[in-house]
Amino acid sequence: MKRRTLLAAGLAGGATLGLPALVRAQAIEKPKVTIAVGGKNLLYYLPLTVAESLGYFKDEGLEAQVVDFAGGSQALRAVVGGSADVVSGAFEHTVNMQAKGQRMRAFVLQGRAPQIVLAVNKRTMPNFKSLADLKGRKIGVTAPGSSTNIMANFVLAKAGLKPTDVSFIGVGATNAAIAAIRQGQIDALSHLDPVITILERAGDIQIVTDTRIVAEADRVFGGPMPAACLYAPQTFVDRHPHTVQALTNAIVRADKWIQRAGPGEIIKVVPEGFLLGDRAVYIDAFLKSKGALSPDGMIPEQGPATALRALASVDESLKDAQLDLAAVYTNEFVKKANAKYPKG
């Protein structure tokens, strides 16, 4: 009898000791996570801002520090250099980095179309007729090597122009870009909202290509071109799966909230500084870009191939590159997030 009692107590004790191990196995491995982004104020990254402002990261047990840079290429460098854990940036960087021997994996989508607009400066190019007119001209981008630079290269390539036929100028993501157009420092601009809508409404620019429209983006790129996403080194994803799941949950909730939200709700969530002094313009920009934002975080299966075609059109070394495109993204975390938050 005594032996049976001791045995039962031992089993109970073992079960109790096992519980913390189970909890630890399911716990977030890195509750403090740093997210690098290039131009946080842009509507391109609206889901990131919503997730932060509405406390979705905190709800998942995360203390997320968002560090803003002038462009996506600089945000990527922060993660490669080890000063940030995750990038909120353009999907095509995952393809480009694999070609360079560095494995990056996208795990949740914020934008299903690039939302990048290529426009010419009416002040310096009043007689613009075709893309060929841009030869020898200065084109503003958020930062050299960023998605705005890549998209401009791709559109110019379709017109027979090489990247070396123009000069790319980094103008940042906010007021400096607007000033560069109005002061005649650049002849064209590859950029995003709200900057584009501000310039468009003021009559400063003529739009040439507009990938805020999903159908036009698909036509330009020949298929679905994933845009903003969260991506990280494969090693980070492997070592911190619960952290990645928590990040994914927060972004999926934000994606779904945005699709339900009206302009008035968006204005309340976005920091005042993001409005660039004009709420009406920001609302207009949001309505133009809303359709290009992801409704559920899912990355399209054809996306990596589309991104590779775009990159290869401006980088000869990628045309014959043997890449594992299935390794640049995963929807496994998104599927779980949608199951957990079917309505956001």
Rank of each mutant, 00 (worst) to 15 (best):
Arg123Val: 12
Gln259Met: 13
Lys319Val: 03
Gly222Asn: 01
Ala337Gly: 07
Glu63Tyr: 14
Ala280Gly: 11
Pro126Thr: 03
Lys32Ile: 14
Gly145Pro: 02
Lys32Ala: 15
Pro163Lys: 03
Lys2Val: 13
Leu42Ala: 13
Thr243Trp: 06
Arg105Cys: 10
Ala51Pro: 02
Ala254Gln: 06
Ser313Asn: 14
Gln206Ile: 02
Ser83Arg: 13
Lys335Arg: 15
Ile178Gln: 09
Gln65Thr: 15
Ala99Gln: 08
Asp278Gly: 08
Thr197Asp: 07
Leu276Arg: 14
Gly222Met: 03
Gly72Trp: 07
Tyr56Gln: 08
Val67Met: 11
Lys256Asp: 05
Leu76Phe: 10
Lys40Ser: 10
Lys135Gly: 04
Phe91Val: 00
Tyr44Leu: 15
Gly303Tyr: 02
Lys162Gly: 10
Val252Leu: 04
Ser146Glu: 02
Leu76Cys: 09
Ala84Pro: 02
Ala84Phe: 03
Gln98Trp: 13
Ala176Arg: 11
Asp68Cys: 02
Asp165Gln: 04
Val66Asp: 02
Ile181Thr: 05
Leu6Phe: 15
Lys343Trp: 12
Leu247Arg: 10
Thr148Cys: 00
Gln183Ala: 12
Phe221His: 04
Glu200Val: 00
Lys32Tyr: 13
Arg123Gly: 08
Pro241Met: 08
Ala90Gln: 13
Pro271Asp: 07
Pro47Tyr: 03
Gly184His: 11
